[in-house]
Design a protein around this nucleic acid. Sequence first.
DNA 1: GTTAACTTACTATCGAGTAAGTAAGTAATG
DNA 2: CATTACTTACTTACTCGATAGTAAGTTAAC
Lengths: 214, 214
Amino acid sequence: MTESTAAQRRQPRSRPETLAKRRDILDAAVEIFGSKGFAGGTLQEIADQVGMTHAGILHHFGSKDQLLLEVLSHRDETDVADLEEQHIPGGIALFRHLVRTAFVNAHRAGIVQAYVVLSAESVTDDHPGRVFFQKRYETLRGEVARAFEVVCAERGVAAPETIELASASILAVMDGLQVQWLLDPDAVDLGRASEFAIEAIVDSVLSPSTSPLA
Amino acid sequence: MTESTAAQRRQPRSRPETLAKRRDILDAAVEIFGSKGFAGGTLQEIADQVGMTHAGILHHFGSKDQLLLEVLSHRDETDVADLEEQHIPGGIALFRHLVRTAFVNAHRAGIVQAYVVLSAESVTDDHPGRVFFQKRYETLRGEVARAFEVVCAERGVAAPETIELASASILAVMDGLQVQWLLDPDAVDLGRASEFAIEAIVDSVLSPSTSPLA
DNA sequence: GTTAACTTACTATCGAGTAAGTAAGTAATG
DNA sequence: CATTACTTACTTACTCGATAGTAAGTTAAC
């Protein structure tokens, strides 16, 4: 009866406003999941914020899990500070970029909170965001490691094996500082602390420390 | 009729086994909240693990929130690696202690996960554990800062203002590395990375870096 | 006139907390 | 030491309120 290759002939063609509406929903979801967590946040709250019913949201995204996954990838796109989507600065510029990101993030508590809460929550059993964060960290560690290699090459230094440790550490400080900063913004200077720590770690890779703890 | 100061004459005296039972419940709660989060974990699951009904647990702890609070303080007591309860090593010994803690933690994924999940979740709105973690980080930053001051004094170095940044950073790397390690244990060496980062930061406080990013 | 973009209304389930009851322990008293 | 008086430590059974997902109907765009 129908064409066997129906998909080819017809692409359902969604309405132009739909895309904007999806963005609104995703933005609301970032805020709700960020402030309540994924398990704690509800479709109802998200729906309220965009003036819709929760069923309307399910119409667009199918399920709560699916919504989270799209929130996570959407965040990467809109996140000005994100590395993956932009043209990646190489070498030392990457580290400067990370520091700048930390300073920028100090004015975007909402998104920072979403990221902190969801990444930590993702380590729980069967969390729908787990794979996303696994891949994300793997990618980011790779970017940072590459930057280290470039910098070492530039300075004629043999790239030490500490690069892997340092790459993970740099991402770790940034994340860890965000937690402390969210809990008590006055007690921690997110930008300056990130800058300090990143410099310390980069420095330590370039000129291996004298092992002060030995 | 009855004695007016009844409370004075009799202290209800709970049964001796009760204390052990409470410990069991707390241990189960650490495991459940650690693997599912606080919002995601249920009293039923905890009850199942200790062979009880969820009402039995409420009998002991009153509410789920209260249970979490007791889990958090209980954890500090049983956590071999914790600083507050033990006699705190001063100066450089503290940093060595932190490194050792990281190596030990690499064999205790369960507790690490509980800590990671709950601390991050605590930044969400009205989370019952929020105050606990605020105080905890404040205390820990203080301990680390004091260690830095001692070390600086020992070496006749004027204590720089970077101490506060460094203190927050050291705790931050440790936490952040735990997240990455939990997501992908093979990709991150929790002990060695913590050691590397802590050394780098301590080193940077003692001999201020040459600002490689400037 | 067909389909996208919803809404309303419903279902099924689950979760924390409560109420009431029961068995066993503990303690004061004669 | 035994009896009475009370408490602890639960269980069973319930309430009440969410919540994710579904189904069917409505409107308006293309």
